[in-house]
Write a protein that binds this DNA or RNA. Structure first.
Length: 476
RNA sequence: CGGGGAAUGGCGCAGUCUGGUAGCGCGCACGGUUUGGGACCGUGAGGCCCCGGGUUCAAAUCCCGGUUCCCCGACCA
């Protein structure tokens, strides 16, 4: 293990250092590819499971569509599709040799879903259709960054069809709230819900909503999106149903997604100069037990007690790790702090004598987060402590977010504000305005927050009267 | 695709200008001393110096050609 670049010194380098030194990822053999290692994957699984549980609560059903399709299938099944040409297919090799049969990357999910829904939906009784996919997607990216922008990424995407626009819009907002809750309750991540400007909308959507999160360098990250597709996709794919009044109507559809970029956001939001700080609910390891001893005599006594405590915590359902590596205690402390483990239990000769343990919390920097407590009732104490760590991480991030948003009313103020954080500024929802902001400030219109004071303001670019303000900041 | 850099043990680099047979830090292996906040000493393993060609007694170094990667600008979860 090497020392990591301090976050305060070089945020970008810190991010890469942490991911690598915390054993979360490594670069693959081919440019742009990344390998997610067990520690990183387990973190992703924990985040994924926490979110998936919420989809169960909302009544969504998981399904699966293949990402790759053999060429012969495509020729046979899709030759009737207008505009299809085998020459457009992506030919690839695999396993170090040429495949017996070329494979193509399937088109974007909306087209697959659209086709399926058009065949599945016949009646108002079939609605709503609520489907979620956990899959990977491949995109053409010129520059990649682990988890934030990769050629293949893992995500979930939801696709729903409804009878009325009222229903579909409610779904868009419901799922944005699910993401927001997932951020707050599972990942201790505050974010701002809002409506994207016309310019930033998903292609084909009549409205796009997003969660915008603030990273440790005060740059914005679009953490999740939820789209109101109106009837655009329904009309393109003939998704129609017969209503109660015996007339045929187009459905109203939505789509929404959250990728493993959320993991990158988690890292960049909570981490500090020492490395990761993981929220207890999703941390791969919640508690690490570190025995401390000088000689064999001390070792046998310490290990016995440490083992018993480890067993108790494990039996209590905690994700706990016993660190019996042949390293110095100082090395281990720093190692686990770098890997973001929320709680550390240290047991040494003094503790054996005093019937105590040293309990250290990761959300408080350095030795200040360490206290000596009795061994009795440790499990319950740690449970309470983990809740407290979750709240503390959320509060720290929330304070950071709110303190770095300035309310401004002129273009000059806006220019200054985006140098030091985000700005809440009166802006007309017009692509030309977005373009001007981007060109002059190297910052972008993140969204129009839903939760904002009502009033009437003057757009700082056009001078027109507007009824809402936009969040503007530099973004990833 | 436009602009700027870099390819040298596993990682980070020096050496290149001024050719002389490859070095440092970290990591790794072994031994000892250590161990309540990233230990220290000793010994050792590990290198077609990106590829191909040329100049030369001699090329990591000079010349020609090629390849790859990284950073900054347009899209995106």
């Amino acid at each position: 293990m090497a020392k990591i670049t301090p976050r305060s010194e070089d945020f970008s380098q810190w991010y890469l250092d942490v991911l690598r030194e915390a054993d979360m990822f490594d670069y693959g053999p081919v440019g742009g590819t990344i390998i997610v290692k067990p520690y990183g994957w387990t973190l992703y699984e924990n985040m994924r499971d926490a979110l998936d549980k919420r989809f169960k609560d909302t009544g969504h059903v998981n399904a699966q569509f293949p990402m790759f399709i053999p060429m012969s299938f495509l020729r046979r099944e899709a030759s009737h599709v207008e505009g299809f040409s085998p020459e457009l297919a992506v030919v690839t090799i695999g396993g170090g040799k040429e495949l017996e049969e070329p494979i193509i990357v399937r088109p974007t999910s909306e087209t697959i879903i659209g086709d399926a829904y058009s065949r599945w939906i016949k009646s108002y009784r079939d609605l709503p259709v609520l489907i979620n996919l956990w899959n990977s997607v491949v995109r053409w990216e010129k520059r990649t960054k682990p988890f934030l922008r990769t050629m293949e990424f893992y995500w979930q995407e939801g696709h729903t069809a409804h009878a009325t626009h009222e229903d579909s819009w409610a779904e868009v907002m419901r799922m944005l709230d699910v993401y927001h809750d997932h951020g707050m309750e599972d990942c201790a991540m505050p974010s701002i819900r809002g409506r994207k400007s016309k310019n930033e909308r998903f292609a084909g959507a009549i409205n796009t909503t997003s969660l915008e999160a603030m990273m440790g360098d005060k740059k914005a990250l679009q953490a999740a999106t939820s789209h109101d597709l109106g009837q655009n996709f329904a009309k393109a794919f003939e998704i129609k149903y017969l209503d109660r009044d015996n007339t045929e109507k187009y459905c109203w559809t939505t789509s929404w997604g959250l990728s493993w970029r959320f993991l990158g956001a988690l890292v960049m939001m909570h981490g500090d100069d020492q490395g990761l700080r993981l929220p207890p609910k999703v941390a791969p390891i919640q508690v690490v037990v570190v025995p401390i001893f000088k000689n064999d005599d001390e070792k046998s006594k310490v290990i016995e007690v440490a083992d018993r405590i480890f067993a108790t915590l494990k039996a209590g359902g905690l994700r706990v790790k016993f660190d019996d590596r042949d390293e110095t205690p100082g090395f281990k402390f720093n190692d686990w702090e770098m890997r973001g483990v929320p709680v550390r239990v240290e047991i040494g000769p003094k503790d054996v004598a005093n019937n105590s343990v040293a309990l250290a919390r990761r959300d408080v920097p350095g030795k200040a987060g360490k206290v000596f407590v009795p061994q009795e009732g440790l499990l319950e104490r740690i449970r309470i402590l983990m809740d407290d760590i979750h709240t503390s991480l959320y509060q720290q991030a929330h304070t950071f977010l709110t303190q770095n948003i300035r309310e401004v009313n002129t273009l000059e103020e806006l220019k200054e504000a985006v140098q030091v954080g985000w700005a809440l500024v009166p802006l007309l929802d017009d692509p030309a305005v977005d373009a001007k902001i981007k060109e002059e400030l190297q910052a972008t219109n993140r969204n129009f927050p839903f939760d904002q004071a009502e009033g009437e303001w003057t757009c700082v670019v056009t001078g027109q009267k507007v009824r809402e303000r936009a969040l503007v900041g530099k973004a990833y």
